[in-house]
Design a protein around this nucleic acid. Structure first.
Length: 514
RNA sequence: UCCUCGGUAGCUCAAUUCGGCAGAGCGGCCGGCUGUUAACCGGUUGGUUGGAGGUUCAAGUCCUCCCCGAGGAGCCA
């Protein structure tokens, strides 16, 4: 019975054959066996394997492919289930140690990495020699028997493969990144390759878990995902520098926040959140800033500042605890001391802005370091800089809320404090261990008259905000919301000293490549 | 925008107060090694010292200007 062999990626027909398999041979590497599928379900794997092993006898270097057909392809993260079994792995060579008659291949597959061992005596000479040719990051399909061995390094580690078969998908040469230290500029230039390195892999997996925890908590607490526009008509808040684009002849700007739009959405859905990229064109050159970053902004109807803070502390604690549960292995790779993270449970300490200013004054008095003293100088009304946040947070073992910021230091839409018009019903959440602000939130003005007054005081054009004022005309309610920066959160949870490693391709003041 | 530091082999870095033959480790290549953990051992390959100009018998080193990067500040709900 004729069999059609297709490339699964392109669906192109590689060959139509009697029970024999064809490969696309153009002098280069052959496609990996698992990329080939049969369109004829009547053709058994056993027939395929026989035909294949005959065919492969003519290929140089000869490689035992038969097992690739017969054995199950597993993921390294599941390796513990396969002790004693013959299985196949598809991945990339992370490192290789050649001991003469013994070779150790460290193979990554995206879910982890595992040591694969070849004793010269135990494997065909061609296979042993083929393994010798492998440069770092060569792609391969490797098979053998899984065994437990405490000496075996890897992720999760403790298991290794006694290799019996190897197919080289591509031989990589002169891979630029070695398993050793490199400079940051070089690494950022090679970010497309750097992400294969263990620590980067670990950080980005923590990020994925943070994002999933964010969505799970919000979706589980009655929030409706409501994504807001990325292209916006005007610099709504005046102060921030925005990225301008040409929108069919008129300027449009990349969003710096979805909050105002989601203030509209709460009147339709009650509780909403947006989750998307945010753009800031400030020329910030610090470890806490990206020009493109991801922010989650929940917004809640019938919610005052006190209620908001309770939501925030529940939410943030949940994110941290999920990471501790699901990413313990990655945090260990990152050598993150998880003890401080375990303290992250509600309630969080609340500190008024006035108290924070006092505390900073006291720290300044007590410090022996004149430079630090100068950095910590602050007048009532000023917003905190990062030295202030660092000093404050180092005095608590949990994230802290600082609430009641001066009206002059905050945005126009924030509800004034009852009886103290000089401060607002606003609160920032500062992460411990010196990490600083990760969340900013506030209760929003709900009175149309006051909002109009604020727009005037801030010299904002009323026409642009007519829709926003409407929200206060038709069924206005007390409402609050906050924004949490994903990268800052991941930086804190991973214990990193710079947030550029927490996003796949960071966009920095001096870098939009790769 | 300001302050500080930096740019030397593919990578990480040396190169002596006061100018005097351009070096090492890693990687690559060749050889050795049956339990390596960024393996190790021996050999070998590898350079427009960010760019331009200047001082000098002689400049990686000193001077001037420029380019690039990093850290911090400012900016940043």
């Amino acid at each position: 019975m004729p069999v059609t062999v297709r490339n699964s990626a392109s669906s192109s027909i590689l060959a139509i054959l009697p029970p024999v398999i064809a490969f696309n041979q153009k002098g280069g590497p052959r496609p990996a066996w698992p990329n080939v599928t049969y369109s004829n379900p009547n053709f058994s794997f056993r027939q395929a394997s026989l035909a294949l092993s005959q065919f492969c006898g003519t290929i140089s270097p000869p490689i035992t492919l038969r097992r690739h057909v017969m054995t199950k392809t597993i993921r390294i993260q599941d390796v513990a289930q396969y002790v004693g079994q013959s299985v196949n792995l598809q991945g990339w060579l992370y490192n290789r140690t050649d001991k003469g008659k013994l070779q150790f291949l460290q193979v990554r597959d995206g879910t982890g990495s595992m040591q694969c061992v070849l004793f010269q005596r135990d494997v065909p000479e061609e296979l042993f020699e083929a393994a010798r040719q492998l440069g770092q990051e060569s792609s391969l399909s490797i098979s053998g028997v899984i065994r437990q061995d405490d000496r075996a390094p890897g992720i999760p580690g403790g298991y290794e493969m006694g290799v019996t078969g190897l197919e080289i998908v591509q031989l990589a040469e002169d891979y630029p990144i070695q398993p050793k230290e490199h400079g940051i500029d070089f690494l950022l230039d090679h970010r497309h390759l750097w992400i294969r390195s263990q620590l980067q892999w670990a950080v980005l997996r923590v990020r994925a878990t943070v994002i999933r925890a964010i969505r799970d908590w919000l979706d589980g607490h009655g929030f409706v995902n409501m994504d807001t526009p990325i292209l916006t008509p005007a610099a709504c808040e005046g102060t921030s520098t925005l990225f301008a684009t040409d929108y069919f002849g008129t300027p449009a700007y990349l969003t710096q926040s979805g909050q105002l739009y989601n203030e509209a959405a709460i009147y339709a859905f009650g509780r909403v959140y947006c989750f998307g990229p945010t753009f800031r064109a400030e020329k910030s050159k610090t470890r806490r800033h990206l020009t493109e970053f991801w922010m989650v902004e929940p917004e809640i109807a019938f919610c005052d500042l006190d209620q908001l803070l309770e939501i925030e502390e529940q939410f943030v604690s949940y994110i941290v605890q999920r990471c501790l549960e699901e990413r313990a292995q990655e945090l260990e790779l990152l050598e993150r001391d998880t003890a401080p993270l375990e303290h992250v449970t509600p309630p969080f300490p609340r500190l008024s802005y006035d108290e924070a200013i006092e505390m900073l004054a006291q720290i300044r008095q007590e410090t022996q370091d004149p430079e630090l003293g100068a950095q910590l100088e602050i007048a009532w009304g000023d917003d905190f800089g990062s030295p202030h946040e660092t000093e404050l947070t180092q005095r608590f073992d949990k994230p802290i809320f600082v609430y009641g910021y001066p009206t002059v230091a905050k945005a126009f839409y924030m509800e004034p404090w009852p009886g103290r018009p000089e401060i607002t019903k606003s609160a920032d959440l500062l992460a411990p261990e010196g990490y600083g602000e990760i969340v900013g939130g506030s209760e929003r003005i709900s009175d149309p008259g006051l909002l109009l007054q604020r727009l005037e005081e801030w010299n904002l054009p009323r026409e642009a905000f007519e829709w926003y004022i409407d929200l206060r005309r038709y069924g206005s309610v007390p409402h609050s919301g906050f924004g949490i920066g994903v990268e800052r959160t991941v930086t804190w949870i991973c214990g990193l000293d710079h947030l550029r490693e927490t996003i796949l391709f960071p966009r920095l003041l001096k870098r939009v490549y790769p």
